[in-house]
Design a protein around this nucleic acid. Sequence first.
RNA 1: GCGAAAGUGGCGGAAUUGGCAGACGCGCUGGACUUAGGAUCCAGUGGCCCAAAGCCGUGGGGGUUCGAGUCCCCCCUUUCGCACCA
Length: 890
Amino acid sequence: MLYDPKSIELKWQRAWADARVAEVDVTRPGEKYYMLNMFPYPSGDLHVGHGRNYILGDALFRFLRMRGRTVLNPMGWDAFGLPAENAAIKRGIHPRQWTVGNIANMKGQFTRWGILYDWSKELASCEPEYYHWNQWLFLQLYKRGLAYRGKAPVNWCPSDQTVLANEQVIDGRCERCDSVVVQRELEQWFFRITDYADRLDAGLDTLHDWPEKVKLMQRNWIGRSIGADVDFSVPALGRPIRIFTTRPDTIYGATFMVLAPEHPHVPALIANAPNRQETERWMATVHNQSALERQESGKEGRFTGSTAINPFTNEQIPIWLGNFVLMQYGTGAIMAVPGHDQRDFEFAKQYDLPIRMVVAPKTAAPANVGPTNVGPALSRSEPAGEPALREASEPALREASEPALREASEPALREAYVDKEDGISVNSGVISGLPTPKAIERIIEEIELRGIGRKMVRYRLRDWLISRQRYWGTPIPILYCDGCGIVPVQEDQLPVVLPLDVPFTGREGNPLAKDAGFVNTTCPKCGGAARRETDTMDTFVDSSWYYARFISARDGTGIFDSRLVNRWLPVDQYIGGIEHAILHLLYARFICRTLHDIGLVDFEEPFTRLFNQGPITKEGYRDPSDNMAWVALNEIEWRDGKPFHKGVELLAEVGKMSKSRLNVVPPDELIDRFGADTERVYTLFIAPPEKEAAWSDEGVIGAYRFLGRVWNHGESVAAVVSPAAGPARAPAPTLIRKTHQTIAAVTQRIERFEFNTAISALMELSNAIGDAIAAGENVSESYSILLQLLHPFAPHITEELWEKLGKQPFILTSRWPEADPALMREDSVTIVVQVNGKLRGHVEVANPPIEEQVLAAVRGNERVQQWIAGKNVVKTIYVPGKLVNVVVKS
RNA sequence: GCGAAAGUGGCGGAAUUGGCAGACGCGCUGGACUUAGGAUCCAGUGGCCCAAAGCCGUGGGGGUUCGAGUCCCCCCUUUCGCACCA
């Protein structure tokens, strides 16, 4: 009987579903293991790349089960979001209908892949049953001041007609539709993630089983910087301007100050500016630019007409406005140190501002580094009586007051741009001669002593903008009352149900705002008329806590059962794509901490181990002049139960495109032709799972052949084990050894997520079994072990063959085999003998258990004696099982 | 620009602590069985050479070592991430 996947896969998928094999009673004790694939957005388009994610999860699930763990592996749907709404506008189908239909399709696909989930815990974020608790969570954060409404410049996507979080803006463009994002000043809802910046940063150190790459990306995104806030007095303003710097040690080199054009003091400062009107026009232009345009226009600035006093040199330094200074970071004002900062340097060159060197490379002798200035000189302000201060900066004053002793060349200044680690302060008064780290410490002390500033830790991270001007999302549970202002919906009034009966035209903004029945309500405080918030929540709110909801998905009384969640979480193994390295994973870590602080969970990190699978790519190459090849490639036919690559033949004629460049790989088509097991084996075999893998249609054939051979071997084995068969020859020791070595190898490789080499080991074993069958040996023991080891990768065929051997259904009864070290040992090895690294020949050593015996056997060997005759043997190196190298002195 | 990772046959990729480079698979070549091959099976397949012996081979150049894909230094290339964050 030929291997026909079609006839067996459906049978086993039904059997698994009927037996509810993946359902876990979370209230029962047992050695728990919680594994989770990131829940998908039900987009409706599914290809083999998606499959990789779920197939590798399922292989892990089946492996862990066979090893006796109680494994929870649930699945749900990240079901709110823009594409559903766009589909509604485009095709006139309701977002819910579109979403539910896609969910049904995807669920069917999972089943056809042979993937086992605990569907009793299924959840969909678009159901009131779920988003009820999304709203409840919002109210808890609101109560604690972690959710707030604020006016701020926000990212607006003109195409999607909604605001976006900073994390959703990539290179100044919308991550979804690629439109250039513009800045708008709007009132929006935010989550105060910045309150958790320090904990989110520090927590990364505890995540030992996360990819370094993801941790690094999060660390960069959080952007923790240690430095100092320093006040520079501004006589014209009558009050100081505060700057933030990470290099306070360079303050003696601060020769001017730059403010963001949006800085609140700017209007007062430019009142005296000679070119005030022009400056205002320029400010308006910069303000209206997108972040992208602002950066592309290069460094630009305007002089405000005012000066500040450098508190350490007492020089009057000009205050400039600059488009490169961001209001959102630090204080929106910087001290510019053009001698030691690339951006300040460029700005100073452009506007002819003074440049001063105050840090010398460690390698240069400090004595040789004189005051090094270029550009115009600065005038000093007379310190208004503060003798101590004056005294302290005396050396600096003296140096600074002398007109540029030596005109520094530009290269010299660039060279002076030194690393934090290895510079020495020069021309810097109290800190002259100190290495940079010490200088920073010392100058901060001085700054704090003088009461003009303090040590400061700042973060790049900004608050999470969570409101969206879209329909298909969780309604924000807030009312606006003319009398009472912002009023949260009372918890017993939840959920605020998203009305389904609204029109979608795509032209009039958020349809919710047009729904009078939804908008108009009464204020629970004063009973007067109130309007509902019509913005919905970012869908990343939905996905920031769903992993906990699975434990009690049907609970109508609370967000989840804390007792059970504390038992089952954190998630032991989380699996998903690298695209969520910042967005989802950062938000989930944040929300988990808020849940912790509320007292709902007793852990801070939701995911113990993280694995990011790589994408599957399909070379989309196509010669535009070559339509014939394009058509031909898609014409693969099935004849007499075999795949027929008609496209391949036509392609050979056309001769322009590699056969591997088929464009479409819909999983159903693949399953129809080769079966799910083939797709599973190929997907995991193709490349290391964390790497990007290029799909190859010929490669699939290899996996199919492999399974076909396993199938055919089964026929031979069945003949051997049947009672009618005569006495079989005893299994050969080499096959036994290979079998046990394979058990050890496959076990270890699955644990390390090295699925590709695990499968190659199984192919080797299968080849060995084939050879043994040809030699008439009894292979039934090895064969049944092969089936067990293969099961996580190819569950259907192994169930079927297992049954044919007369055994009980696999998934319910089978255990992972144990390797016997004694059976893995070689009973003789061929040792390669080298003399001084030069290959000399081979020596056979029987029963070589320990190193001394091998060495003795080799040294006592006649031929070896000849090779080393008359030479001085320095040492003899033994590489277990492989070679002996005799090192001699010439 | 800054940061990280990676360069191995025609292709995807193997190779604990440095220890027979190219496992496994695809493709290709030849053969068997066949009306046929696109199924299946057998053999071969890094390069130079008719072949053998031999030599050369893990991006390039140096170095350490009896021995380097692996360790050290310099350079090149690619991919990814961040990108005026003071």
